[in-house]
Design a protein around this nucleic acid. Structure first.
Lengths: 148, 148
DNA sequence: CTGTATCCTTAGGGATACTG
DNA sequence: CAGTATCCCTAAGGATACAG
């Protein structure tokens, strides 16, 4: 077989650009916390098990906002609060997050063998599309109903 | 809606472990070059458009081998050559690579608007599973036939 | 052809403390 | 509640040269 670069290979070249954001631990954690944990406030993100330092958090929130992944809203009733929401662009990182999760679980956390990893793996394998749609649906519903 | 952490959220916590490898630009480029470009030799990887320095390349090849993503084989006929091949674990990063590609193309390279991005996008959207299977199939065939 | 060996430089991580 | 301001540090990047 000839060593010819395929069409897809050429498209993959700019992969690095996406990794600037998606390859970053903190940025992805923030978006995960939003989408799966319905978090909106600075302090909520800080409370995550990964214990993100406030410097990092602040830095990444700005970056993600500047790039259009998330949006920032001052509280209406509670003027001291600032609410962060995932935007369309941020939501579209879900397939990426899911693949990362699938991979990580498979190769590093299989030994956990607990119920939840089995559930997730089964769901991801047999029903990925519906599963992702549900997650997005739930987040949108959450956002519609939240009073800031 | 109650702010309850879902089953999936808990599984996503170890995301960072996967990112150690998959979030790294160089490691992913190497595996991309193997899978999409049928590259096997040190110098072939160095020739990629991203111009990976040999120090980085050497470092990542070792890391990827140690983690079981790739394997290293000394040449049989040409004893001076060393051949690197993608192993099963490495091949299973394809869905991740593809999602990264889809995302990157969508948000950063749409303006390219060239034929190849349109082709890939269409294919990815309508026929993702088959497309990935083809890529894996082609790589396996390449590996079966190569004489080292 | 496949790497090592240096050397230098800087961005990023992380802890801690403090403020509007 | 939502961030800034410091300070320290090391891990990683990158260039260049050279060796088995």
């Amino acid at each position: 077989m000839e060593k010819e670069l395929t069409v897809t290979f050429r498209s993959l070249c700019p992969m690095a650009t996406g990794l600037d954001v998606l390859g970053d631990k903190w940025s992805l954690l923030i978006m995960r916390d939003m989408l799966f944990g319905f978090k909106t406030l600075f302090n909520e993100f800080k409370e995550s098990p990964e214990a993100m330092p406030s410097k990092m958090l602040s830095n990444r929130l700005k970056k993600l906002e500047a790039l259009g992944f998330i949006s920032r809203h001052k509280g209406v009733h509670n003027k001291k609060s600032v609410y962060y929401f995932l935007e369309k662009k941020g939501m579209e990182t879900l397939p990426f997050m899911v693949e990362l999760m699938v991979f990580t679980t498979k190769f590093y956390y299989d030994h956990l063998g607990s119920t939840y990893t089995k559930d997730v793996k089964t769901r991801m394998k047999n029903d990925k599309e519906n599963y992702m749609n549900e997650i997005i649906f739930n987040y949108k519903q959450f956002r519609r109903n939240i009073v800031i």
